[in-house]
Design a binder for these strands. Structure first.
Length: 221
DNA sequence: GGCGGGATATTCT
DNA sequence: GAATATCCCGCCC
């Protein structure tokens, strides 16, 4: 028996409408090493390219389809897993019909099954609430990596199950780690379960001073 | 527990 | 060449 029709139907909608319903959802990944299940406590919504009805300057797909982001243009209910900062993976659940681009970034959650395996994958976590406290941590605890980009998430290796009832105590605010247009309070598309200890700590997406090669030092005159 | 800085590779300009 | 949907470590409260 597959998913209740609710979920696939829900995933036809833009991520901004889907996101709050994903709070409390269970995401199960059955790998060769064993199963791990996370209960989502924090997600972020991303919409589409500049020339779409819902342009989103913070979205990877804002400048159109590329090899990297093509999974976001694929069918809803699949994963978009991307690699960033040269070392981390993060996973999205793709929304809206094929050919359009929208997705929900899984930012944080509580590991509710497969704790031992999750601890092995995240040896630096001092507490269990840190195992999936952040998008790259969640992906690592779940075992999501490059090979999971574009695979179905509604059955098979990965399964998403909605909670019996939509979550209460949902808060929303600006997205994390995005600076410039699209990153500020104009787009309050980060959703989380208020008070849950597994929700990631926000660091405001302000541009911190960056390491720069000496050759790129600012001109003084 | 909160900060500052470094690390790392893929992408697009 | 520069930015990035981030995390970890060391240090300081």
């Amino acid at each position: 028996m597959g998913q209740p029709p609710d979920l696939l139907q829900l995933l036809q909608l833009p991520a901004t409408e889907v996101a709050p319903f994903l709070l409390g959802a269970l995401v199960r990944h059955e790998s060769e090493e064993g199963p791990v299940v996370v209960r989502l406590t924090e997600v972020e919504a991303y919409l589409g390219p500049v020339d779409s009805p819902d342009p989103d300057p913070g979205a990877h797909s804002y400048r159109g389809r590329t090899e990297r982001n093509s999974a976001m243009f694929g069918p809803p209910g699949h994963l978009y897993v991307y690699f960033s900062y040269g070392m981390h993976f993060s996973a999205n659940l793709v929304c809206r019909p094929e050919g359009t681009s929208s997705g929900c970034l899984m930012r944080a959650g509580e590991i509710v099954e497969g704790l031992e395996l999750a601890r092995l994958r995240r040896p630096t976590a001092k507490h269990d609430y840190e195992l999936a406290q952040g998008p790259a941590r969640l992906a690592k605890a779940m075992g999501f990596a490059r090979e999971h980009n574009g695979i179905p998430a509604l059955g098979g290796e990965v399964t998403v199950t909605l909670p019996a009832a939509p979550a209460t105590c949902v808060s929303s605010g600006p997205r994390v780690g995005i600076s410039g247009p699209g990153g500020t309070t104009d787009y309050p598309w980060r959703f989380w379960l208020e008070g849950d200890p597994t929700v990631s700590k926000f660091r405001p997406g302000v541009a911190r001073a960056r390491h720069r090669p000496a050759s790129a030092a600012p001109k003084t005159q």
